[in-house]
Design a protein around this nucleic acid. Structure first.
Lengths: 240, 240
DNA sequence: GCAAAAATAATAGTAACACTATCAAGTAGC
DNA sequence: GCTACTTGATAGTGTTACTATTATTTTTGC
């Protein structure tokens, strides 16, 4: 058993190495010029994560970002139309990255129930550092998603932007979780709602842990993963 | 049995009559001058609901609201410091109203499980008109809560404003649901997280029904209430 | 190694936003 | 009729969210 596990782990590590020069693909209409294509672009992404995390999306401006990276406001406008598009870029990147993690950490599991459990783990756990992408601080980006993601779709333009495909990575991730729910429990009637509730709810519980502790039971010693695993498995009548 | 039900219904109707001149109390530090205290104040509330629903919170300004109600921008500033405070006022009012509905529609139910079921009904159903408050369009206010509420707390000021008590009605509502969960199932370990997940999740599912239908199973014919009742009752091992 | 092309920086400018301050006009209570 | 209070009107300030133009630097193709 242990030998098998080590063997699987080996495959996974190889796989990760194989994909180590992988880049997360973001819908090209979100940017004017691909930020991965130049040094300035990479610095825009790197420091926008740090600055948004620091001062919040409302107070964030291209002017401040320019000052931070010693570059000009107008140069940043050549990469992104406005800060809303930049936020879309960052959150798209995050969901693409999480989808990659989800696939990597579940593809070798055959039992649908174990696969689902591992998926819940990936989706609800706190974000961990990933050395594969040197210009991105995944932990801070995770915080940005918790605090700002919903602002990217709670707009009057959401239907147009959805049609353009700006949210398709996010939706694809939820479809994956939905399909795993369905494989573990084919007769369940609300797999998509359950998947979206878990993904959105996990962000929400992480926020509550930081700011409204009286309306959550989650804490370091009993993280959201515990709550959501119990919730999903009981809902589907799967034994833990 | 039917006689008893009619009797209870009679009591409830009496009770509603009794409270018909009730006003929902909002934390006084949220406003500079009580909008319920003058005609202009009432018109500010009435038309801010219509205007925010129409153009969204981002595009909403006091100048536009002033034009709409034939009043001056500066006069509105005498009631609210800024539009963020006005949003807090509207959402506080909504949660206070929903709490009132929750209490009214559950207080006479003795069985903890039935009480919880009715609570889930109140919290997850679409908002319905309420003639008791003539200056408030509850349906549109409900839409505003779905689309804008999270923007009221996803800010850098959330901890300060929470300390001031700006979110206490919202938290109190969730505490009520948490307590009902606990009465129906005393051994359940995550009652607060479940309550907050249902309240937030209900708003989210309503949003998805309108904009991202592929990641929800909810629709007119199978509304969020069905999903959440099944979710909660199975999680708590209560038979429907 | 140099010219052309591309990328970036610098500067200026505009309309809207988010206010603050001041003063005038109306109105309500005593 | 005086006072206090409310509302309206006007003006002004600093910031935001851009756009446009021109200058400078960097890259690249030959």
């Amino acid at each position: 058993m242990i030998v098998l596990l080590l063997f699987l782990r080996r495959i996974i590590l190889d796989m990760e190495k194989l994909f180590s020069n992988l880049t997360i693909t973001v819908h090209p209409k979100i940017y004017l010029k691909d930020p991965e294509s130049s040094d300035l672009g990479l610095r825009i992404i790197e420091h926008s994560i740090l600055l948004v995390d620091e001062i919040g999306f409302e107070a964030f401006t291209f002017k401040k970002l320019g000052q931070r990276i010693g570059s000009n406001e107008s140069s940043i406008y050549r990469y992104f139309e406005n800060k809303h598009k930049l936020l879309l870029y960052l959150t798209n990147w995050y969901w693409g990255w999480l989808e990659y993690k989800l696939v990597m950490e579940t593809y070798s599991i055959n039992s649908p129930k174990d696969k689902l459990k591992q998926a819940l783990e990936v989706i609800t756990r706190p974000v961990e550092m990933d050395a594969s992408f040197s210009h991105i601080d995944e932990v801070k980006l995770g915080q940005i998603v918790v605090n700002e993601f919903s602002k990217s779709y709670l707009t009057k333009e959401v239907d147009d932007e959805n049609k353009e495909g700006y949210f398709s990575i996010y939706k694809r991730l939820i479809h994956r979780v939905r399909d795993m729910i369905l494989e573990a429990c084919p007769e369940y009637k609300h797999p998509a709602s359950l998947a979206s509730t878990v993904v959105d709810g996990a962000l929400h519980q992480h926020f509550l842990m930081d700011h409204f502790t009286s309306i959550t039971d989650c804490k370091k010693s009993s993280p959201p993963t515990v709550f959501f695993k119990h919730l999903v498995l009981n809902t589907l009548n799967i034994d833990a």
